[in-house]
Design a protein around this nucleic acid. Structure first.
Lengths: 206, 206
DNA sequence: TCATTTTTGTACCGTTCCGCATTAAAATCT
DNA sequence: AGATTTTAATGCGGAACGGTACAAAAATGA
């Protein structure tokens, strides 16, 4: 790491904070629906500074998607704490997801990736790849925990962690879409509960 | 119904066919990503004709969404033919869904509603309502079939049709998102199979 | 035949879009 | 201090945007 001070005028903004602010705008308005002027206003950077620091609009958008994916993966790792029972792990994943999906100024905004990147996936292959790769990463984390659960006997030996992880992710995808569609919280919580039972079996271990 | 001939110059286009062509464009490019010029080119109508017949861009988009919802509900009713076993019904739903989701000129385009309307749901409340209402209609059709299945003994008495229908729909939502994200067909078929087992139980009735 | 009604086609409106050229400002290096 | 390097700010420019005014065209009604 070069710890030497850089030559020119120093930046007057924090790169990570700027990406987070840009993410908020993209989240609400989508990629095509967001103008550079809106990004400029939200980040307090002029368009040329945005351009210089992050590239064009698609580059910046991909940066916000990558940040969201990384944050989500960290949150998922925390939720899947293997020192806790599987049932609590899965419930915690849905709890965290819903907490994010139901936030929003005007209306529940769902998942940033599913809610905005899906629309661009046909026309922008880099967005499509980012989306696919992110979904696969989420699947993989859940699958790993389910494999551990089978080893430990939290799930029966016949359980299929691969198939089960796809189903568990599916519930999350559906929560993401339905939240953004304006589904009531009760219904989403019912779905999350059903998802937990589906993965861990119906018997409560209260 | 007034069968009297209308006064002025007759239309040189078919309204339903035009909506279908517009749907194709919106499906690939999303609402914000589609220009009136693109719609005009695809439908062979000039912008003023489009505007006169369907209203503004959002009105036209809502019309294409409504058409897709109606088509999908009909397809779902067909798939849920109660004279066939539940397992075949659910498998058929996913089969039809995948057949649609995997079609597309450049890349698999997923579900029109989930793939494009979700992105607009925050900014355009009419789109959000259309999306929510459509998803609820799909849920309701599945739930009705599952209730019948419980009555008939295709599912155990303790089965919860409401919760199960939400889960069954979730698999469909996930197929929609993943297809558009570029997931390989094998994986989608695995998920669909897992979804059928989840709803109907693992025992194959071969 | 001529007025009326509706659709079609051309052309244009003001706005917004993304991206960049250019200059001023703020830091380090010599 | 002066040269150099990097960022910040202003402003522009060509293109595309959604939407519409207006006139020509094609039907019906009288």
């Amino acid at each position: 790491m070069s710890e030497t001070k850089k030559r020119g005028r120093p930046r007057a903004f924090d790169e990570a904070a700027t990406i987070e602010k840009a993410r908020e705008v993209f989240w609400d308005r989508g990629f095509e629906g967001t103008s550079l002027d809106a990004l400029s206003a939200a980040t307090s950077l002029n368009r040329p500074s945005l351009y210089g620091a992050f590239g064009d609009k698609e580059d910046l958008y991909l940066g916000t998607l990558a940040g969201y994916r990384d944050d989500s993966l960290v949150a998922m790792e925390e939720a899947l704490d293997p020192s806790l029972p599987l049932r609590e792990n899965i419930a915690e994943i849905y709890r965290r997801a819903l907490s994010t999906y139901l936030s929003g100024e005007t209306s529940a905004r769902g998942c940033f990736l599913i809610g905005t990147a899906t629309a661009e996936a046909i026309q922008h292959s880099r967005v499509r790849d980012m989306l696919r790769q992110s979904l696969e990463a989420f699947d993989a984390e859940i699958e790993a925990r389910l494999m551990l659960a089978v080893e430990r006997g939290e799930l029966p030996k016949e359980a299929d962690p691969k198939a089960l992880s796809l189903l568990a992710s599916s519930v999350m995808h559906s929560l993401a879409v339905r939240a953004r569609a304006g589904a009531p919280r009760d219904m989403l919580e019912d779905l999350a509960r059903a998802g937990v039972d589906m993965v861990c079996g119906r018997a409560p271990q209260k």
